[in-house]
Write a protein that binds this DNA or RNA. Structure first.
Length: 884
RNA sequence: GCGCGCUUAGCUCAGCUGGUUAGAGCGACUCGUUUACACCGAGUAGGUCGGGGGUUCGAAUCCCUCAGCGCGCACCA
């Protein structure tokens, strides 16, 4: 008879079992396109794929990671047991701001200043940090039993992914979906970078509302210091009180002398609030900026990127905004410019990373034009190409897509993907003689055209190297108000109607317009010339086209390289820029110092990790992925953007189902926080109670989209369950192995061949077998429907309170030495069947105990698969012929 | 302001498309246990399913309404 320890000691098994699985390669899916599978498959053969939400390299594992790892591992293991080729692709995220802040802090503790260190050295330090901590978190994910394919592990700054990022940027740029411009942005003076709208968090703070005597108006403001940047007063168009004043200019007495404002009527003004008149500070308020844009009101910036008053604010220059506010209020009171002051609760904007107050300031940044992307992304969910669980988040998703604003993607940081744009300052050049305005357009094959292409479609796509085209077009964007753009290819001069791009709002049309009006065709080896003229100046580019290769997107031939022989720019900025995958040829080009928003690379994750933009086997086979499992808190940050980018770059939704889990909270449903001291550390709990217990505690009782409370008591409960599994199995194994197995007391080759004699069944046998069948069916269905909690609970209840409490007790009689030999044998067969099949079903939830027990079970019943992880799921949903 | 969620036993929560006597875990109480497991077993108590109204043969479940709590988005002069 076997000897098995009395209690389950997880520490003795977990790490060893994990190593055995990993070494055996069970986490790596078989890529077998078009071939018949090498194993018994219960599915349609489609691979099951999850891209792991890449944890930041900044920290160590917490309960949130444990939750996603558990849920994703359950799905992965379930589908593996079902026989699907299963890929769970892990990785980590460089997490721009977060990592830079943490490393900066740690360096400062060592007395090292980031700025003295310099960019290159600093980035080296961050990489050192990454080497140290990036692997910590993946090691800890293994501890959770995550059966992901480590051979495919990725990091967002890997060469392949960086290449994907550059490709995406350049492609969007060429499509006119990325632009650079001066906008009022959310600026964090503490992190010293712009952040996106959804990276801003609002919180209430007690403050004051100042009623100012403002020329003929009395108006309220929370930020009197911005008065120095005021250029207008806005009122509601229907407001009778101010009708007469609209359009007129007024002189306002200010602390730095008189200044002039214009009165405009705008619907954004709420006539009910305050006096119905608003002072407009276009440079430091989003609403004011928009009002100013609509009424052509000038903008005056008075706050700089350090959150301090600028030189144009006289004696207040250099003060922080709060200091300036106090000083200005004091001065205004002295001048009798303040009517009265109210108490007022402000909803102030703060940075989601550092908590600092956000200053809206005008800044030149890169933006993604999101609306065209959002429309497709919205449609994908509307058409059910993507299903969101729980469904109610679809509405939230739609609302976001409907109200989306352009996405500011440049960050003034060092750690991240540096923007693939290069700048060059150019000397002023003497004006060129006026160009001949020839309106003739080039058509493919047309007489006089130097273009040799025979079919017009090929011709149309064979513009010039997209990278150079973008570089050229970038200048159109930069200077506005071009009168005309001429393209001269050596023989024919082509006029391009510039009306289409005088306005930045029409940027999407740029590429199209160019193609339509004839900036197309290439001349291998011929020097061409592009000339731009604007109200600010002109630019001339001499270009030589060389060679011909297939375009990587369309497969059509394009110019392989375009040498810019010379280019000249003369405009107000005097700067030209180049957008491309690699630095441009020639001297003096400097790359844009900014990096991209972390979420830009994250948005590419489901396909960049599989090799995109290269056409790899992995991309072909595993993309689109199956499930995106993540927290509802990053629905906008991440999920929405993956959908937008997935559709844009691959033409496919990046996943079929989005499963949103909730936030892990403490047993009283409070947020886990260090200050409350209620945080649970999975790395303490795992050695204490076992990974399986932690996993079960996270799954059972949690509903998608709903926060999940968890306390140590709950985990203890599932530790007890682990032990119950161990002991019920121990009983089974010990009893079944009584007698001589070699002579085949229970016989049979595999579990399905266990010939259970229906004639000999006791009522207890019949009941358990029937219940067992139900559980198999229910659990399969629940897992297919993403109802993990219910599935786990069902299995828990069945195993403990039906199998162990009822059936094992009943089996004791049936196994008694004085019982009929045939009954004993039959009972043993039933026990083996029930136990082995239940272990398989429990395995996705509790991989370690179940595998540990399986290995024991295999010793007395060697026909079982070598490892539980690759066993066969005991219920086939397609076989609806389940006889009761 | 717009939207969403929650309110079920002392605590934390399940309860899918309405259908036996509303469930679990923890906690409480009683009893038991040399015999797979005290990280155990058998059992008990505990709920007018937030209030009100409606639909229905039948409502924790669907609809309306009110209240409390929480969250998201927008505004925030």
């Amino acid at each position: 008879m076997k000897v098995i320890p009395k209690a389950y000691e997880p520490e003795q098994f977990e790490q060893d079992l994990y190593r055995q699985w990993e070494d055996a390669g069970y986490f790596r899916p078989e890529v077998n396109m078009g071939k018949s599978p090498s194993y018994d498959r219960q599915t349609d053969g489609k691979p099951f794929v999850i891209s792991m939400p890449p944890p930041n390299i900044t920290g160590k594992l917490h309960m949130g990671h444990a939750l996603f790892a558990t849920l994703e591992d359950i799905m992965t293991r379930y589908h593996r047991l079902m026989g699907s080729p299963t890929l769970w692709l892990p990785g980590t995220d460089h997490a721009g701001i977060a990592t830079q802040t943490v490393v900066d802090k740690s360096l400062r503790k060592q007395g090292i200043n980031k700025n003295e260190l310099g960019r290159e050295k600093f980035i080296e330090k961050v990489w050192e940090w990454k080497e140290q901590y990036g692997s910590t978190i993946t090691r800890q994910l293994r501890r959770l039993g995550s059966s992901c394919d480590w051979s495919r592990e990725r990091f967002t700054l890997d060469e392949g992914l960086s290449h994907a990022v550059r490709t995406a940027f350049v492609d969007l740029y060429n499509k006119g979906l990325i632009y650079r411009g001066v906008r009022v942005v959310n600026w964090c003076p503490r992190c010293h970078t712009a952040i996106a709208d959804d990276e801003v968090e609002y919180r209430f703070e007690k403050g004051k509302l100042y009623w100012l005597k403002y020329g003929p108006f009395i108006l309220a403001t929370a930020r009197p210091e911005t008065k120095l940047g005021d250029t207008a007063v806005a009122v509601h168009p229907g407001d009778q009180r101010y009708l007469e004043m609209v359009g007129k200019k007024y002189t306002i007495q200010g602390v730095l002398g008189d200044f002039e404002v214009v009165v405009v009527a705008d619907n954004a003004v709420d006539p009910e609030f305050g006096s119905g008149a608003v002072k407009v500070t276009p440079a430091h308020s989003f609403t004011d900026y928009e009002i100013a844009q609509r009424h052509n009101v000038p903008m005056k910036q008075i706050i700089n990127e350090n959150g301090r008053m600028m030189d144009n604010t006289g004696k207040y220059a250099g003060m922080k905004t709060i200091e300036a506010r106090e000083a200005i209020v004091a001065d205004m009171e002295a001048m009798g410019l303040i009517d009265h002051i109210d108490e007022y609760d402000h909803n102030i904007a703060t940075c989601y990373r550092c908590g600092g107050v956000i200053e809206p300031i005008p800044s030149k940044q890169w933006f993604v034009k999101t609306r065209p992307l959002a429309e497709k992304a919205k449609k994908a969910v509307e058409d059910h190409d993507i299903k969101i669980i729980p469904e109610r988040f679809e509405k939230v998703y739609f609302d976001w897509m409907d109200n989306i604003r352009d996405w500011c993607i440049s960050r003034q940081l060092w750690w991240g993907h540096q923007i693939p744009v290069w700048y060059k300052n150019l000397p002023q050049l003497p004006e060129l003689p006026e160009l001949t305005r020839n309106k003739k357009q080039v058509e493919a094959g047309q007489e006089g055209s130097p273009v040799s292409a025979k079919n017009s479609e090929e011709f149309r796509f064979s513009i010039i190297d997209p990278e150079d085209l973008s570089w050229i077009l970038s200048n159109i964007q930069d200077t506005h108000n071009y009168e005309y753009v001429d393209f001269f290819d050596g023989q024919i001069r082509t006029r391009i109607d510039t009306e289409s791009f005088t306005c930045t709002e029409k940027q999407t049309d740029r590429t199209g317009v160019v193609a339509k009006t004839g900036l197309s065709g290439y001349i291998d080896g011929v020097k061409s010339c592009l000339e731009l003229r604007s109200t600010n100046g002109f630019a001339k580019y001499e270009i030589e086209f060389k060679g011909q290769v297939p375009d990587r997107f369309t497969g059509r031939p394009v110019i392989a390289s375009t040498e810019i022989l010379n280019h000249q720019v003369d405009n107000t900025s005097g700067v030209s820029y180049y957008v491309g995958m690699e630095p441009p040829r020639g001297e003096g080009w400097v790359q844009d110092p900014d990096v991209l928003d972390t979420w830009f690379s994250s948005a590419l994750w489901p396909f960049s990790t599989l090799g995109w933009p290269e056409k790899t086997t992995d991309l072909d086979y595993f993309y689109p992925t199956t499930v995106m499992e993540t927290g509802y808190d990053i629905l906008f940050f991440w999920v929405a953007r993956m959908v937008m980018f997935g559709l844009e770059f691959t033409g496919k939704s990046p996943f079929e189902t989005v499963y949103l889990h909730g936030l892990v909270r403490d047993e009283h449903n409070r947020k886990m926080s260090k200050s409350l001291g209620n945080s649970l550390d999975p790395l303490d709990l795992i050695p204490k109670y076992g990974t399986d217990a932690v996993r079960m505690a996270l799954v059972v009782g949690s509903t998608p989209g709903q926060d999940i409370p968890i306390g140590e008591g709950k985990i203890k409960g599932y530790r007890n369950f682990s032990n119950k599994i161990w002991n019920a199995s121990r009983f089974t194994i010990l009893r079944v192995s009584e007698g001589d197995l070699k002579t085949g007391e229970i016989g049979g080759e595999s579990v399905s061949d266990l010939a259970i004699d229906q004639e000999l069944l006791s009522p207890a046998d019949q009941q358990i077998l029937s219940r067992h069948q139900e559980v198999k069916r229910d659990v399969s269905r629940m897992l297919n429907e993403f109802r993990f909690s219910l599935a786990g609970e069902t299995l828990y209840d069945y195993f403990w309170h039906t199998f162990a409490d009822i059936y094992i007790e009943a089996s004791k009689n049936q196994l008694a030495p004085d019982a009929d030999q045939r009954i004993r044998e039959n009972t043993k067969k039933i026990l083996i069947k029930l136990l082995s099949e239940t272990l398989i079903m429990l395995h996705p939830f509790m991989p370690f105990v179940t595998e540990a027990v399986w290995q024991e079970l295999r010793e007395i019943f060697p026909s079982l698969p070598k490892y539980l992880i690759i066993a066969k799921w005991p219920f086939d949903a397609d076989k609806k012929t389940t006889r009761s």
